Amino acid sequence: MTRRLIALLLLAGTATLAACNTVAGAGQDISKGGHAITNSAEKHSD
């Protein structure tokens, strides 16, 4: 019983950490895309 609980907690923790990293990475990618669009618009507006 205890081994199953520990295994379940470890799997849940691993899944949570992986999901956080994925969301953080996606946010960074979107932010970089926004900066690229802004920079391009500023260059072409002169």
Rank of each mutant, 00 (worst) to 15 (best):
M1R: 08
M1V: 04
T2G: 14
T2Y: 15
T2S: 15
R3G: 11
R3H: 12
R3C: 10
R4P: 02
R4W: 09
L5D: 04
L5F: 12
L5I: 05
L5M: 09
I6N: 03
L8H: 11
L9G: 07
L10A: 05
L11F: 03
L11M: 05
T16P: 02
L17R: 01
A18K: 01
A18G: 02
A19W: 02
N21W: 15
N21H: 14
T22F: 03
T22I: 09
T22S: 06
T22P: 04
A24Y: 08
A24G: 05
A24F: 06
A26M: 07
A26S: 11
A26V: 10
G27Q: 12
G27D: 11
Q28N: 10
Q28D: 07
Q28M: 11
Q28C: 03
D29Y: 07
D29C: 03
D29K: 09
I30A: 06
I30Q: 02
S31T: 09
K32G: 07
K32I: 04
G33N: 08
G33L: 10
G33D: 05
G33Y: 02
G34R: 08
G34P: 04
A36I: 04
T38D: 13
T38N: 12
S40G: 11
A41L: 14
A41P: 02
E42K: 04
E42S: 09
E42D: 10
E42W: 10
K43R: 11
K43P: 02
H44A: 12
H44D: 14
S45Q: 10
S45E: 12
D46E: 12
D46W: 12
D46H: 15
